[in-house]
Design a protein around this nucleic acid. Structure first.
Length: 516
DNA sequence: CGTATTTGACCGGCGC
DNA sequence: GCGCCGGTCAAATACG
């Protein structure tokens, strides 16, 4: 069962592709790092795999080979040793072999045969991997084409097309990027230069998609230096047009009985107030994952439906996000790229009047609110994936539907400036409240509805009918995530596309969390 | 005892 | 200027 839904939701996870291979035991991936067992098959397989395909794992493999510690990555030359060490009592096997040359010869021939079998297996798996890679590329191409097609169809605005397309494509690239999701502590000096570079590059991609600055503080995103020329330009433009804007916010509506949704960050409550027009108190939290992190969030139950939890994020994290948060952020960004279709703005300029259901599952998830003191994008995750364009009647205030959360550019696009707010600085292009969106996407990720919608949308784009697994296939990953703010250890699967990761690591603890 | 939460006080923005 | 309101501070309290 778990295998089943993994397969569906992690459709780009190379590791899971392998996992599906009939000849490869499931323990292959899991055991590669944790267990010391005579699993030469798996080891050999990975070794070859990485050597031929996966650059970013090369360094790891090389390290292992160099260390030759026999803990995880055996090369062929080590097979014998590994077998002896692992299958016999240490210290005894050697003398035993010396005393019994005949048996040793027999064993040697046995090992040779086994080695040949392994080589054969290795070839077979490699060819399978090639096929998978091929299919992967094909699907990627199809996705590109689908996105371009949709962009053309919805090409209501040239500027949007220019900005959006490239971003979309970048997003897709990032989504498809088989490199391991990053997010780990980039400030920490890495032992391997190659690895570091890979991480940086990957982060760059990630940030290209996710990055937003809300203009409140430009404390360097510790993730990096990621600056595509384009974004750099945008940033400069923004800085040039610095305006007295305060903060953009992202609000997430999700059904949850828990007082908090788990978004991968650690929060400390610093206040609670009764808000006007809502019998439920509003709680104020600040991020405590790093000293001085300016990110705040407000949590309040919906006055109309107390089962709906409204979480509003504000500010930029000044620290790397834990994998649990980053992965989800990446995924959501990728999902944004997938789901975003063409022009997203209100063509007649009237709030609430624009709706482009090119991607029915997601296009109604986001609304921009013009009435709030701050530009706020609201992501409504309270509807089921198949509740087709669920256009929750916009709240009394002015708002207009947006296809897409997690799509930073939207927040920055002056075209989206609420009529009431004359192009608030917060809405300037290039202002990228990165972390806010990331946090929100993390929150989104914790909502089963979103992941289901994402899966359905992806399936739609891919031209395949969405499987009817819906929430059930996604929600079972609770154990994958650590509790609030605690990074899930080593959960990024090597060589897996980032998008996949978020699919598999989505936290659904929203309903299980106890307040910290 | 250290840390997190609670809760009333305080502050600033905004409308009248 | 005043009051309302959202947001934050910080002392008191709770908790492990």
């Amino acid at each position: 069962m778990e295998k089943h839904h993994r397969r569906e939701l992690t459709f780009l996870h190379s590791g899971d592709f392998l996992r599906q291979n009939p000849g490869v035991p499931d323990r292959t991936l899991d055991d590669s790092s944790d267990h010391v067992k005579p699993q030469i098959k798996e080891m050999d397989f990975f070794s070859s795999q990485y050597q031929s395909h996966d650059h970013h794992q090369e360094s790891k493999t090389d390290d292992d080979n160099n260390n030759n510690n026999g803990s995880s990555s055996f090369v062929d030359s080590c097979v014998n040793i590994g077998l002896n060490l692992l299958s016999s009592s240490p210290g005894v096997s050697r003398s035993t072999n010396e005393e019994k040359p005949v048996n040793s010869n027999a064993e040697e021939s046995t090992l040779k045969i086994e080695l040949e079998n392994l080589n054969e297996e290795n070839r077979r798996l490699r060819s399978m991997l090639d096929q998978i890679t091929k299919s992967y590329n094909e699907v990627q191409g199809q996705l590109f084409m689908a996105l371009q097609k949709q962009a053309h169809l919805n090409q209501g605005d040239q500027k949007d097309a220019v900005n959006g397309m490239s971003s979309r494509i970048m997003s897709v690239q990032q989504f498809m990027d088989p490199r391991p999701p990053v997010a780990l502590d980039v400030n920490e000096p890495s032992g391997s230069d190659d690895k570091t570079q890979e991480l940086s590059a990957s982060q760059e991609n990630t940030m290209e998609v996710v990055s937003i600055k809300d203009g409140t503080d430009q404390t360097s995103q510790s993730w990096g230096s990621l600056k595509s020329p384009k974004l750099e330009q945008s940033k400069n433009e923004d800085q040039a047009s610095e305006a007295p804007f305060r903060k953009a916010r992202v609000s997430v509506r999700a059904r949850s009985e828990a007082p908090l949704i788990s978004d991968g960050c650690q929060w400390r409550k610093y206040g609670q107030k009764m808000a006007k027009g809502n019998p439920c108190p509003r709680a104020y939290y600040r991020c405590t994952m790093a000293v001085g992190c300016p990110v705040r969030k407000q949590v309040q139950r919906c006055a109309d439906d107390k089962s709906i939890l409204i979480t509003t994020y504000e500010g930029n994290h000044n620290h790397p996000l834990p994998p649990a948060a980053t992965a989800m952020a990446n995924t959501t960004s990728a999902a944004a790229a997938m789901l975003l279709s063409g022009s997203t703005k209100s063509k007649d300029g009237l709030p609430g009047s624009a709706y482009f259901p090119s991607l029915p599952y997601a296009s109604s998830m986001a609304t921009l609110s013009a009435s709030a003191p701050f530009p706020t994008i609201t992501l409504d995750l309270t509807q089921g994936p198949n509740a087709v364009p669920f256009l929750r009647p916009p709240p009394s205030n002015a708002s207009f539907p947006l296809p897409l959360h997690g799509y930073p550019q939207l927040l920055g696009n002056p075209m989206f400036a609420p009529p009431k707010l004359p192009a608030p600085p917060a809405m300037q292009l290039g202002q990228r409240p990165t972390s806010m969106v990331e946090t929100v996407t993390a929150a989104i990720a914790s909502d089963p509805n979103f992941t289901a919608a994402l899966a359905a949308a992806i399936s739609t784009i891919m031209g395949a009918p969405p499987r009817n697994n819906g929430n059930s296939s996604i929600n079972n990953d609770e154990n994958n995530n650590s509790s609030n703010g605690v990074p899930a250890p080593a959960h990024p699967a090597p060589g897996s596309p980032q998008a996949q990761q978020s699919c598999t690591t989505f936290s659904t603890k929203a309903c299980n969390n106890k307040p910290g």
